[in-house]
Each structure stands twice: as structure tokens, then as C-alpha cells.
């Protein structure tokens, strides 16, 4: 993991700024906002799976929970600042409880997968059955299969009349994604993140070194839940309706596919995978010849078989083999020099 320096942050800021202004020239901001939301969602799983080694089959649960929490809170409060915070806190708290239950029980990989999957299904079944008027939180009806429409969408903090929508929602989401991305970067290069990677590599060794694996995994899981919840809140603002479909298995599957295709264990990979595949799906949805699921399925199978590490590591490798070779020696020498000076 390279360190975060002011220089690297500044470069990233400039690149992000350029990308942010150039993207709307190619794709409509309405679609772009959704791609960004999916990118954030993929980043949440990329963090806990790629760096923490926790394969969660139910990341959609936190996404949906965030969206629902936002919608319910927005109806009750009539503005959006507090609901946004609630939409992050509720999934994080839920993830902490669920994660604590699983990690303190020392459940294995497969069992973890089953439980997260089951929890997602519970939400899906429960939300689908809440059509009756008795399912009310505050003044918000849960609405069952039809979901919750018509809540207050994002507004300027303190000014409930100043809505943020359309182009400005796109810019806000982009900035949020950028901030979260650098927060994730910061977490990963902090001691906490480094120990998380150590746990992924060898759980037993890390625990023998005296790190409390269960607590660390739980916290990481909660952070992942918080990011997914934030993505859910932005989704709720974009779609202006939340439905139980957010909790569906298909949604969970897609998040995993994004991470695999983009590249596990990279920070940018899941975001690019999510945006790329979601855009592909959007384009494919416009033709009638081949069903969407066929292509998604083939992509997943081919990647697992032939490119299990994902696109970003593969591109990095090609880059290093072709372009990077000429310059390859210089960084190596400087690194050695630095190590020597430390020694």
C-alpha cells in the first residue's frame, strides 16, 4: 500500500475534477449519478471482501436498509440532512450487530455467506409483506411491494426548499464518492487497515500476534455497512422511490460481480467494475436480441475461470510489461536506496 501524500492527493483531486466535468459530456448526468451510486456500493464490498477477506453475499441488505432508512426518516423529518446521517448510522449499527454475531461465533466462509444471504432474504420477504396500514414508522408507511414514494429528496442543509437534483445531484454524488474513496484509502493505510489485510492473509497468525480478530472484523464489516448505507441513501435520492427490490438476490449478485470484474484487493477496481457493468447493462437493456442476464452470467463465469483477479490488476500487469518496462528500473533502485537509508 502506497502512502497517502499531499502530492498524490492533489493529483487525484485534479484528475477527479477533470473526470467530473468531462463525464457529463458523454453520458447524461441522470445515468451517471446511478453509476456513481453503484460505484460507491461496490467500493463497500470491495473494502470488506478485497481487503478484509469477508465475503458478504448480502451487501444489498445494507444498501436497501440505507435507502429505506433515508426514505422513512425523510418523511418524518421533512428535510434531508438528518436522514442522510441516519441512513449511514442504521446500516452501520445493523452491520455491527450482525457482524459481531457472526465473527464472535467464529463462523467459516461458507456459513458467513449463507447467513448474510439469508438476512437479505428476510428483509426482502418482510418488506414485501408490509403493505398493510399497521406497518408504520412515525408517519411513513412501509408500503409492501410498492415501496415508499414521495419523500423529501436531498436539499441544501438547513434549507428544505432548496432541492438538489438533476445535475447538482450528480456533482454532490461525485464529491461524496471522492471523499469516501479517500476515507477508505486513509482507513486502509492506517494501522487498522494494515492489520485487516494481515487478517485476510492469515487469520491465525494475526491472532497469535495478539490482534483481536473478531472485534476488528466486526468494525470493518460495520464500516462496509455504513458505506453501503450511504450509497443506498443516494440511490433513494436518485430514484425518488424505494422498493423491496433493493434487497433482492439479484442486487447482491451484481455487487459481487462488479467486484470480481473490476478487481478484488484494488481500491479503484470495484468502482470501475460497477460503473462499467452497470453502463453495459443499461446499453444492453435497449436491445431485445439477447437477454441481459445471459451476458452478465457469461461475464461472471469467464472472469472466474480466466481472470479471477479482475480487470484492474490485469491492466496494471500489461501496463508494467509493455510501457512500464523502460522506466521499471528507476523506481526499484530508489526504493532500495530508501530502504538502505532507513536501515
Amino acid at each position: 500500500m502506497r502512502e497517502i501524500t499531499l502530492q498524490r492527493f492533489a493529483i487525484a483531486l485534479v484528475i477527479a475534477g477533470i473526470v467530473m466535468t468531462l463525464l457529463p459530456l458523454m453520458v447524461g448526468t441522470y445515468t451517471l449519478t446511478l453509476l456513481l451510486v453503484y460505484g460507491m456500493l461496490a467500493m463497500s464490498l470491495g473494502l470488506i471482501w478485497g481487503f478484509g477477506g469477508i465475503l458478504c453475499f448480502g451487501q444489498a441488505a445494507f444498501f436497501g436498509l440505507g435507502a429505506y432508512a433515508y426514505a422513512i426518516a425523510a418523511i418524518n423529518f421533512g428535510e434531508s440532512t438528518v436522514p442522510m446521517i441516519i441512513a449511514v448510522l442504521v446500516p452501520a449499527a445493523f452491520a455491527a450487530v450482525l457482524g459481531g454475531m457472526m465473527f464472535y461465533g467464529r463462523l467459516g466462509d461458507v456459513y458467513l455467506g449463507v447467513i448474510t444471504l439469508v438476512v437479505t432474504l428476510i428483509f426482502f420477504k418482510f418488506m414485501n409483506s408490509t403493505a398493510g396500514p399497521e406497518y408504520v414508522i412515525g408517519t411513513a408507511r412501509l408500503g409492501g411491494f410498492n415501496g415508499i414514494p414521495g419523500y423529501q429528496t436531498l436539499n441544501v442543509p438547513g434549507l428544505p426548499e432548496q432541492y438538489i437534483y438533476g445535475d447538482s445531484l450528480y456533482y454532490v454524488t461525485f464529491i461524496a464518492l471522492f471523499v469516501v474513496y479517500w476515507l477508505v484509502n486513509w482507513v486502509l493505510q492506517s494501522p487498522f487497515g494494515r492489520v485487516a489485510v494481515a487478517i485476510r492473509e492469515n487469520e491465525q497468525r494475526a491472532s497469535l500476534m495478539g490482534y483481536d480478530i473478531r472485534a476488528r472484523k466486526t468494525v470493518l464489516f460495520a464500516v462496509g455497512g455504513a458505506i453501503a448505507g450511504l450509497a443506498g441513501a443516494f440511490y433513494a435520492n436518485w430514484a425518488e422511490i424505494v422498493t423491496p427490490g433493493l434487497f433482492s438476490l439479484g442486487q447482491s449478485a451484481e455487487i459481487i460481480i462488479w467486484c470480481i470484474v473490476g478487481g478484488l484487493g484494488t481500491r479503484l477496481g470495484p468502482i470501475l467494475g460497477a460503473a462499467g457493468l452497470a453502463y453495459l447493462k443499461f446499453k444492453l437493456g435497449q436491445q431485445m436480441l439477447i437477454d441481459n442476464a445471459v451476458i452478465t452470467g457469461i461475464i461472471l463465469v469467464l472472469f472466474v475461470l480466466f481472470l479471477p483477479k479482475g480487470l484492474v490488476p490485469a491492466i496494471e500487469k500489461i501496463w508494467r510489461l509493455s510501457v512500464g518496462r523502460k522506466r521499471g528500473r528507476r523506481p526499484a533502485r530508489s526504493r532500495r536506496g530508501r530502504a538502505a537509508s532507513h536501515g
Binding site: L55, D109, V110, G113, A253, I256, I257, I260, I290, D291, N292, A293, V294, I295, T296, G297, I298, I299, L300, V301, V304, L305, P308
Partner: peptide, 25 residues
């Protein structure tokens, strides 16, 4: 993919999507 539990899960998940699509078509 024998012996790679998580990879088989993912690949078969892909297959499940594929079959749903094919049967829909």
C-alpha cells in the same frame, strides 16, 4: 474449479443468471 469453494459459488451464480436469461429467451 474443484477445491476453490468460493470460486465455484461465483461461477455457478453466473451460470444461474445465464440459464435464467436463456430460458427467458
Amino acid at each position: 474449479l474443484y477445491g476453490r469453494l468460493v470460486d465455484t459459488m461465483l461461477a455457478t451464480w453466473g451460470l444461474s443468471l445465464f440459464f435464467v436469461g436463456i430460458v427467458t429467451m
